[in-house]
Design a protein around this nucleic acid. Structure first.
Length: 864
DNA sequence: CTAGGGTTAG
């Protein structure tokens, strides 16, 4: 366009000159108007130069205005000002044009300077002036400047024309003062379609879509006919409310009224369908557009992302490029949202590359930069997210909140709290979303003191403590075990919604107040609120321990009845419930019934396999996790390694190790300890020892695992040496350590040494002996054939001796063929657990070996 | 010269 116009200007003036004819000023004027309309700056500059060359003074009022208009339209207010400066007789129109030139771009200070100048020169502003000034306030989002103009208008009784009032309504709407918008609207004597559209748009844009729709209805009842632009705003409100029914009605109405659906209106309809989740309708509309603008493509990409069809969204992006449409900033922002998993990282990086290639500077464009930050975080690279943040030349509360959110996602809660404490120094005021993010971190880190701090800041900043924030606080206090505080906040919210109830129910459940949780669940239902998948999942946490396993079954059937079992989060909660109280079969049936899995559901099942020592099943499930493209995390590895310890062969064990290498998870001490334990239990002592020696930091669990490994491999003396090394490094042993030490003594035949450790446990190490320690000692005596000592020890056991300790003794009796003691030991076990099958089998075996067949048969026959 | 409009970051 621009090149064409320039060429035309050049050739026509040149041909005139060739014939030595001076171009007629009216042809210059005509060209200038065309340049202004087409925003052809280059051609405009050329005409300007010719005008000067032809000796026409650009202070001439005709050319002055034409040049002003041209430069203003082309977005060059400074060039316009040079012309304005030379205009000799500045009339009102000149002033208005100059102000308009500055009001289109962000030059609010210049606009007010001009306004001041014209007032000084006794030029009275008219409606046009005021409209222009208000447009400047709107585009600068400056409520202060806007209010100033409003005051001036009131003082000078200038609130007369509809157009100025409309500009005022728009200004207040755009600057976020809905209250003032409403006041001006209500005071307006005459309202036209623009007035109504301005206020509907203001409410829709500021997140008050319900009021926007109410206003739309009021407008219709007052017999004001909506036009294309009005419908765009109404559709915006429908989109925000996800009111698809209303949206469809509006769409039909538009068609019935015979309003032409152009690209802009069409995109608004498309967007409404996209936001309402009607992807098919959106797609259909997209195809019927005469021209697919970049905005329409962007809306379409967003629609796919919101429907979680990320792959399709990316495909659309490439289709768009193929169709020859140039991607805009918004295109990249929308498409980056489609990268949400670690597998999308490469795609996200490619998009980052395109952003740079398209000349968009992510460092200075805070919105694009923040989108990139979130993309990297979602795709699992906290490192890149932090790098993008560091590179931003300007940071605002949104970019800071995005960073905090990235650290929350990566479970680095203490870092979140440190970053949050820096906000104040950086001059950033947290907003409600910042607080929601920080409270999430406090809850997960169980640091309620930081939550208290956030709470006090919310109050201090006079932020509205709305039900969202209160719900988040309830949840945080619940997770931190401060039930009273959670309850206090819960009570203060009215009316209560499902999310709030879910939070308090989960709080009670997590604090082991299952009964209260159930009562609140009941109360919620009585209030007519419908529990959702999260409510059920939180409630299931309340069902723990064998004592309540009945409730668990009842709840499971209730969940099946309402068809909630196919929700992944409910399934996970059911799995966790059966992990506490249930059989392997119960768990497997829940797991198999889940249509979609995530890494957490896999982890839950793996933990159950570990609990039931189903190593091979766990190994297979782990392979499925990998084959289906999920990224195992540290929990996945810990459960798998625990489950597989002792049940898989060494080749399989090594394959798990190989999978670990190259994931960041390998640096986790807990994971390495599980790996060590697996190697040991799978018979590879050297493998276990290598892992242990490779550890940079060793916690008590790591020491325990290695001591147990020595003991298990019959290297009792070395186990004891390692124990001494552990003590030498200042690590305090716990009950598990001492059990392993006793086991090592037992295996090495060091009964006396074992007894010394046993006797000094409480005094030297501060660990009270438990059943397990007694059982170890009984086992040690039993192996050494010291049945008297073993029996003495059992009699000294505090509280009631448990079947475990007696079973160790029974086993020793078997080895030493002591039928009398065996019968006594078995009787003790049957007193504690009459159905103890293991003890019956062992006793029967002892009788059989002694040739006491009748007794053997009689003991076995009692097995039920 | 002058009032209302489609996509977009936590």
């Amino acid at each position: 366009m621009q090149g064409g116009l320039l060429h035309q200007a050049l050739s026509s003036t040149q041909s005139l000159h060739a014939r030595d004819v001076r171009p007629n000023p009216s042809s210059y004027a005509c060209f200038l108007q065309r340049c202004a309309r087409s925003k052809a700056l280059l051609a405009g500059h050329y005409i300007h130069a010719r005008i000067i060359a032809d000796g026409i003074h650009h202070g001439d009022s005709l050319f002055g205005k034409l040049l002003l208009e041209m430069y203003g339209n082309c977005g060059c207010p400074d060039d316009a000002y040079k012309v304005f400066h030379h205009v000799q007789h500045k009339d009102l129109q000149c002033w208005n044009m100059m102000i308009a030139a500055y009001s289109h771009v962000d030059h609010i200070e210049q606009v007010f300077k001009l306004l001041h100048q014209m007032l000084m020169q006794q030029v009275r502003p008219d409606d046009g002036t005021l409209s222009n000034v208000l447009v400047a306030c709107t585009s600068a989002s400056s409520l202060t400047h806007g209010r100033l103009v409003h005051t001036y208008m009131i003082l000078n009784s200038l609130l007369t024309s509809v157009s100025v009032i409309n500009a005022l309504i728009t200004m207040y709407g755009n600057c976020g003062s809905l209250c003032s918008t409403r006041k001006v609207f209500l005071a307006a004597q005459h309202k036209d379609v623009v007035t109504w559209t301005a206020i509907i748009s203001a409410f829709a844009k500021q997140g008050h879509a319900t009021e926007a729709l109410d206003l739309s209805k009021e407008m219709l009842s007052e017999d004001v006919e909506p036009d294309r632009v009005t419908f765009i705003s109404i559709l915006d409100a429908c989109a925000n409310l996800e009111a698809s029914e209303m949206g469809k009605i509006v769409h039909t109405l538009i068609t019935e009224m015979g309003i032409h659906i152009d690209v802009v209106l069409g995109t608004a309809v498309l967007n409404m369908y996209g936001k309402c989740g009607c992807l098919q309708c959106a797609r259909l509309l997209f195809q019927t557009l005469q021209r697919q603008s970049v905005v329409a493509w962007n809306a379409m990409i967003t629609a796919y992302v919101q429907s979680k069809l990320c792959k399709e969204a990316l495909q659309l992006f490439y289709q768009m490029l193929k169709a020859g449409v140039k991607a805009s900033k918004v295109t990249f922002i929308s498409t980056l949202n489609a990268c949400v998993k670690p597998q999308d990282l490469a795609e996200g990086m490619l998009l980052h590359h395109f952003v740079v290639e398209n000349g968009i500077c992510a460092r200075s464009d805070i919105i694009v930069g923040t989108s990139l930050l979130s993309m990297y975080s979602e795709c699992g690279s906290l490192y890149d997210a932090q790098n993008v943040f560091d590179s931003l030349s300007r940071k605002n509360v949104v970019s800071w909140t995005a960073l905090l959110s990235a650290y929350v996602k990566h479970e680095k809660y203490s870092e979140v709290l440190v970053l949050f404490s820096k906000l104040d120094r950086k001059g950033i005021s947290p907003n409600p979303i910042t607080f929601l993010t920080v409270l999430d971190a406090c809850a997960n880190a169980k640091v309620s003191t930081s939550g208290d701090l956030a709470f006090s800041l919310i109050i201090e900043d006079e932020l509205k403590l709305d039900s969202f924030l209160k719900t988040s606080l309830v949840s945080m206090y619940g997770k931190c075990g401060r039930l009273e505080d959670a309850k206090h906040l819960f009570v203060s919210v009215s009316p209560k919604n499902v999310v709030l109830y879910t939070a308090i129910i989960a709080a009670y459940a997590q604090c082991n107040h299952g009964k209260e949780a159930l009562l609140l669940f009941q109360q919620m239902c009585q209030e007519g609120l419908k529990p959702d998948k999260y409510t059920y999942s939180g409630l299931l946490d309340a069902i723990t321990g064998p004592a309540t396993s009945l409730d668990g079954k009842i709840f499971h059937s209730l969940i099946l009845e309402i068809g909630m079992e196919s929700e992944t989060c409910v399934g996970i909660a059911l799995l966790n419930m059966y992990r506490n109280c249930g059989t392997l079969d119960d768990a497997v049936s829940v797991f198999v019934g889940l249509p979609t899995h995530n890494i957490v559901s896999f982890n839950a099942m793996l933990a159950i396999y570990a609990q039931h020592q189903e190593g091979y099943a766990a190994f297979e499930l782990f392979q499925r996790v990998q084959n289906e493209g999920f990224s195992p995390d540290h929990v996945t590895f810990i459960s798998t390694l625990d489950a597989c310890a002792g049940s898989i062969d060494l080749v399989q064990a090594k394959s798990l190790h190989v999978n670990l290498v190259g994931t960041g998870v390998i640096y986790d001490t807990v994971v390495k300890t599980a790996l060590l334990n697996m190697y040991s239990k799978c018979g590879d002592f050297k493998g276990a020892n290598d892992i242990f020696e490779s550890l940079l930091e060793r916690d008590v669990a790591a020491w325990n695992a290695m001591i147990a490994a020595f003991a298990d491999h019959g290297r009792g003396k070395e186990a004891l040496e390692l124990f001494k090394r552990m003590r030498g490094e200042g690590v305090n042993p716990d009950g598990v350590t001492l059990a392993s030490v006793l086991l090592a003594c037992s295996r090495a035949g060091l009964t006396k040494v074992g007894r010394e450790y046993f006797d000094s446990m409480s005094a030297v190490y501060g660990v009270e002996p438990t059943v397990e320690h007694y059982a170890c000692m009984v086992d040690a005596y039993g192996r050494a054939g010291l049945l008297n000592e073993a029996e003495d020890l059992l009699k000294k056991m505090p509280n009631h001796p448990s079947p475990v300790a007696w079973l160790a003794f029974l086993s020793a009796c078997k080895v030493h063929r002591d039928v009398k003691r065996a019968k006594h030991a078995a009787d003790r076990i049957f007193e504690l657990d009459p159905k103890h099958t293991g003890a019956r089998l062992m006793l029967s075996n002892i009788y059989a070996v002694a040739g006491m067949w009748n007794d053997a048969t009689s003991v076995i026959s009692k097995i039920t």
